[in-house]
Amino acid sequence: MVSHRRSTQPGRGRGVRVTVLSAAAATAAATLTGAPASADPKDTREGAKAAVDRLYGEAEQATERYNEAGERVDRLRGEADRAQDATARGQERVNLMRNELGAMAGAQYRSGAIDPALALLLSSDPDTYLERAAVLDRVGARQAMTLDRLRQAQRKVAQTRAEATRALAGLERDRAALTRHKRTVEAKLRQARQLLNSLPPEERADFDRASRSGRDGAPDLSGVAPGSPRAMAAVAAVHQALGKPYVWGANGPSGFDCSGLMQWAYAQAGVTLPRTSQAQRYAGRMVSLSQAQPGDLVAYRADASHIGMYVGNGQVIHAPYPGAPVRYDPVGMMPVSSVTRI
């Protein structure tokens, strides 16, 4: 963590204000980090900044779980809709076959069907009788086939109805998980904001510049070329997102979280990526960091809870955390867990 120097501007009133704010930061940091409130102010402030960074990391992990649950909700909603449509179509077929069988039974009743042997004895025209008997046989066979199809259709309706019921139950479970993850994210971000707000203004500004090695301005990317046409299109798109705000759970175009930015950028290149950073790391071929090319996805931390896009000359573009817009940062800003070529 980069150390931050105190301002040396004179003025007793300002010194008192900084002392009070630093004391507030010490108290907040002690609450979150377990450090005693009487600890060295510099150590306490550094502990507060480390706690903010940790909270942002935990919020990011919860955001990815939120995104994953949201993806499952969308998938289950589609499955439930398809199963319900199939159930309705199957029930319609069942009703048509029932009507057909009812018409057959009514026709037989109206014809006064009698024992075929007795009908043959009474018939004055055996040839006509035999023709009619053949027709009756065909009707009977058709009736049997209709009954068989009806039984199969009823089984299919029962199966699709059960599938719809399971999908809807899963949908409700994942909606509940979505709500839990949302509350977790909001709680972590609220804690981080409270802790940041307890720091003096100049230290808050220093934290934003120093956290994750953020830098001002664009790095020199002259002469850097992506490895494929789709990577080139994704890199062009991700550059368009520079300066857009971090919005947790968002995948553009006006705001992004880390994996939402990667998904959006590659969508502009006609490539569909999964929603979460953990799934995105397996969406292509893994390469070593030394082989990274523009357009490659760089996942961070052992659990791949953060992700950015390599754009060349040791730089990535990513959506860092709330309050920090989409920006350039050194590829080594955090421990790299994998590099994936799409």
Rank of each mutant, 00 (worst) to 15 (best):
R12F: 10
R327N: 06
A83W: 02
A153P: 00
A69C: 07
M145C: 09
N99E: 15
A162E: 13
A218Q: 15
G217L: 08
E60K: 07
K244M: 05
A113G: 13
R65L: 09
N313E: 10
M104N: 10
H239P: 00
M104E: 13
A83C: 08
A86E: 10
S213A: 11
D174H: 11
S254D: 12
Q263F: 04
A319G: 02
S228E: 05
D329S: 13
A119C: 08
P126Y: 09
A158H: 08
G34M: 14
G102C: 04
M104T: 15
G223F: 09
E64I: 04
A62F: 04
Y246V: 01
M262H: 02
E202A: 05
L171G: 01
A233F: 15
V287M: 04
A162Y: 15
R54D: 06
K244Q: 04
A269Q: 03
W248Y: 11
P10F: 11
M232N: 14
G170W: 04
A144T: 15
G308C: 02
S111D: 15
G223C: 13
A299P: 00
A83V: 09
E68T: 05
R72S: 09
L32Q: 13
E64Q: 07
A88M: 06
A241V: 14
R209Y: 14
S305N: 07
M97I: 14
N99V: 13
P322N: 06
N197G: 14
N95C: 09
W264C: 00
W248D: 00
V73R: 02
E186S: 11
L242I: 13
L130K: 02
R89Q: 12
L120E: 05
G47Y: 01
A119E: 05
G312L: 01
R230N: 15
R6N: 13
R190Y: 06
A324R: 05
Q291I: 03
I317E: 00
A39K: 00
V235T: 15
R341I: 14
L189A: 01
Q108S: 14
